[in-house]
């Protein structure tokens, strides 16, 4: 092996990369963990003594209600994304190869465009005198405008609109790997369509489902600008609470504790994802 002096380039690269990640990823995250067990302080944001008060505050009925409501909206978002995305990814994987490239491109275009602007565009459509209400009224399906903006439904629609590609892409990648011979084998062994779906297709696409859930469920609790634009004050996300605690109320321990709960949820989902992949690996598929 070469020693350090013989490879100054290698040393410089590694120092730069490690330095960056330790200072801007590891240190800040440790700080958040630290802040969550400290006491709120007006001048320096946080101070000793150590306490678990912030975590206790998470169970305050007022906040608990917001968190549960946020979790509910995120779960609904994930479910809707899965219901739309699963058949979508399946259909996509059945198209011609050339066409698939184009279709996947069309799917990631919105991902590259400004999510704030796209959320705002939904406002044009959902507003009381917006396009959807006008369309429904001119069709004669409704007599007067429906209140769509500033509802729970509007927040879910907004989240689904922003996050749908993140559900579809991992699903598409598992459907692409789904081997036709396994489906044929299942058929030859006498399984009907439904039975093949439940016993072969669902288990094989499970890692994609979990990856999609991971990529949708957690961001759906953090994207605070969606309720700000579409939801009104009664439909807050965990992200709104964290933002308020850090930027307005200056209660760092509480904001940090809320963020750690999100991180733990992410860790749990990642673990489940790895487990499901390993199980499929064991069966030699």
């Amino acid at each position: 092996m070469h020693n350090l002096m013989q490879q100054p380039f290698r040393t410089a690269v590694l120092v730069l990369v490690w330095g960056w990640l330790l200072f801007l990823v590891l240190a800040p995250n440790l700080l958040v963990v630290g802040a969550s067990v400290m006491t709120r302080s007006p001048g320096t944001f946080i101070s000793l003594p150590l306490t678990l008060d912030a975590y206790r505050q998470l169970f305050d009925p007022l906040y608990l209600e917001v968190f549960l409501h946020s979790l509910y909206m995120a779960a609904m978002t994930t479910m809707v994304c899965l219901l739309i995305g699963y058949p979508f990814a399946w259909s996509l994987s059945k198209m011609g190869k050339q066409r698939q490239v184009l279709l996947v491109f069309l799917l990631i275009v919105p991902f590259w465009t400004n999510s704030l602007v796209r959320t705002y565009a939904l406002k044009l459509i959902l507003a009381t005198n917006g396009l959807l209400n006008s369309a429904l009224m001119s069709l004669g399906w409704i007599d007067e405008p429906i209140q769509m903006l500033y509802t729970e439904g509007a927040v879910i629609v907004g989240l689904v609109y922003l996050l749908l590609p993140f559900m579809i892409l991992p699903l598409y990648s598992v459907f692409e790997d789904l081997r036709e011979d396994l489906l044929r084998a299942s058929h030859d062994l006498g399984a009907g369509r439904w039975s093949t779906f439940i016993h072969v297709i669902v288990p094989l696409t499970l890692p994609g489902v979990l990856a999609g859930v991971m990529l949708v469920l957690l961001p759906a609790m953090g994207l605070f600008f969606v309720p700000d634009i579409l939801g009104g004050s009664r439909n807050l996300l965990v992200g709104n609470v964290i933002k308020n605690q850090f930027l307005d109320a200056r209660n760092w321990p509480f904001g940090a504790a809320a963020s750690i709960v999100l991180t733990l949820a992410m860790a749990f989902l990642m673990f489940a994802h790895r487990l499901s992949k390993r199980r499929i690996g064991e069966h030699g598929v």
Binding site: V17, W18, L21, L24, V25, L26, A27, P28, N29, L31, V32, A35, F45, M214, L215, L218, P219, M221, G222, F224, G239, I242, K243, F246, W252, G255, A256, S259, L262, T263, M266, M270
Partner: peptide
């Protein structure tokens, strides 16, 4: 570990990264 840290940055909700950096910068 390096790989893992990059993966975590990519996967973790943006808001978690945001507050950790704010805490660092202010402190």
């Amino acid at each position: 570990v390096l790989n893992g840290m990059l993966f975590v940055v990519m996967m973790s909700p943006e808001i978690v990264l945001a507050i950790s950096l704010l805490a660092l910068f202010l402190l």
